[in-house]
Design a protein around this nucleic acid. Sequence first.
DNA 1: ACGAGGATGCTCT
DNA 2: GAGCATCCTCGTG
Length: 216
Amino acid sequence: MRILTEKFYDRPTLEVAHDLIGKHLVRVLDDGAKLSGRIVETEAYTQDDPAFHGWGILDRETGLLKPEGRGRDLFGKPGTAYVYLTYGVHWLMNVVTEREGIGGGVLLRAVEPLEGIASMYERRASARKDIDLANGPGKLAQAFAIAEALHNISITKPPLYVREAGAGEHPAVETSCRIGITRAVEFPWRFYVPDNPYVSRGVPSDIVQARKRGRV
DNA sequence: ACGAGGATGCTCT
DNA sequence: GAGCATCCTCGTG
C-alpha cells in the first residue's frame, strides 16, 4: 500500500485533516517492530486560527515570520511531524500541512489499532481493552512511542509514515468543533468516523462552554 | 454514569 | 505566574 508523499500534505489543512481519516498511521520501532492503526479522528489548525500554536509566529502587519517560538516548525515543510508536550505530561503529534512558509497542522487524535497491539499494551499500562490504547491524542502518542525524538522528522518514510488504506476502506466522515481548547471553539474543524468506538470520548469545546454558561 | 482534582514542565496571543 | 490541542484515579450516585 502506497505511502503518502509530501504532495498529499502540501494542500489546504482542512482537506488534509479530512482525507487522513481512514488512512493508516505506521510506526517502525528501533527493533524493527511495526505498529499501525487506522486514523479515525483528526483536528485542523491553520495560521488564521487563534488556537493555532503558530498564531503568534506570523506578524499580521508585515506578513513576516518570527524566527523563534514553539509553533515555528508548523510553517515548515509539509509532511513533517510536529510533536510537543502538553500539560507537562503528554506528547501530542501533528502533521505539518501547506507549502513551506504557510502555517498549518493536523492533530492526530485517535486511531484504531491494527498491527503491534501487544507492543502498544506494554507502553499503555492503564489500558484494559484495545479501545483504550489510542482513543485520544496523548494515548495515541504513547501507544506509538511518539515523543520529542520524532519532532520535525519527515513522515513520508520509516520510522513514521502514513499509508493508503485498502480498497473499500473509505469510512464516513463527520465534523464537530474541536476538543480541549479555549479559543476559536466554534470552528468546526474536528473530523471523525461516526459510531466508531476507537474515537476519543472528549466533548467538543463549544458544548463545554455552553454548559458552563448555562450553569451560572 | 459522571465529576473533581492532581500530575508536571514548557511556553508566553 | 498562568495556561495549556490530556489522562488517570478516586469519590459519589
